[in-house]
Design a protein around this nucleic acid. Structure first.
Lengths: 166, 166
DNA sequence: TATTGTTATACTCTATAACTATA
DNA sequence: TATAGTTATAGAGTATAACAATA
């Protein structure tokens, strides 16, 4: 999936260098999988799943947050994070109390332990990533990160020249 | 998953710029999903699935190939591509004949129609991608592509400083 | 016995729908 | 009635294991 760069389609070399390369998805998707797999040992070492880590990351310093808002923020379904929250709460990494104002909602907040786990995991991941990126030239590393941030910030990517209407 | 860049972890700013950014996986994985979703309409328009397109791409000009080898090349399971091959063969986009030398293996090759579909899909995808990348500066686009190629070429990514032994 | 391709089964992840408790 | 959270069910995608044909 990550290698088949031998297509000489020079028919649309309009942008930049026009060098033959695999489809973006054919590189990005496997890279994402590899990165996730690479994070797994770190997460395991701290006893959290990827979803749990994402919850810890997003809870951050903002204690006032409904579960629905949290789920939306991490692109998850409301139903999907419940087991995660149950586990995190049972291990005192987060607190979950009913809102006095509206007792339907649960206010989520990070405990000290949760903050510690989050920081430890984040540091380990960041260190490993920097080690990875160190294999690139400074210019490429910079461009890669900037391009990545720019592209991943787009809410709706489309490859179509005109929107599909039916 | 793609946005939470508000962590001021300056404790490990050792490599490069040290600017705060989300985890790589938190950007790469959603981007991959978005790219796949963006490719879907193009694939649909040509009546092929993502796996079928990958098969067409990899079959390319090398007709002598076993199904197992093909599966391995596109990071799929042998069992997973069979339905795909069945469909492609039924639609005359690929040919599948038993090898006279070893009648266990099936020789796969691309038909003219298959080559046409492959080229059409690839062109459309490439066009859309260039349009996407046009939003980046030339330097960033270049760095992004180079970094992406370099990272996705690594067979085994690891974030751990030392192998986990127990 | 080992290997290619195939089929059948089971498992994981995720989304959808139904339920409760508050409002 | 509408909404936050929860639970239960069903679906898609994937991997594992068993099978048939050939070597």
């Amino acid at each position: 999936m990550a290698e088949n760069a031998d297509h000489g389609d020079t028919t649309l070399g309009e942008a930049g260098e026009g060098q033959a390369r695999p489809d973006l998805a054919a590189m990005v998707v496997p890279l994402g999988r590899a990165l996730m797999a690479a994070e797994q040992p770190i997460l395991d070492a701290h006893g959290v799943t990827m979803w749990a880590y994402m919850v810890l990351l997003h809870l951050d310093e903002t204690p006032i947050r409904t579960q629905a808002a949290l789920a939306k923020a991490i692109q998850a379904d409301k139903t999907r994070i419940i087991a995660v929250l149950d586990d995190l709460e049972a291990r005192d990494l987060i607190r979950r109390r009913p809102d006095p104002m509206d007792r339907r909602v649960r206010l989520l907040s990070l405990t000290t332990g949760g903050r510690q786990v989050r920081d430890a995991v984040r540091s380990a991941i960041r260190e490993g990533e920097e080690r990875l990126l160190a294999g690139l030239s400074a210019a490429d590393r910079d461009g890669f990160l900037r391009g990545l941030r720019a592209l991943s910030a787009r809410p709706e990517l489309t490859l179509l020249p005109e929107p599909e209407r039916d």
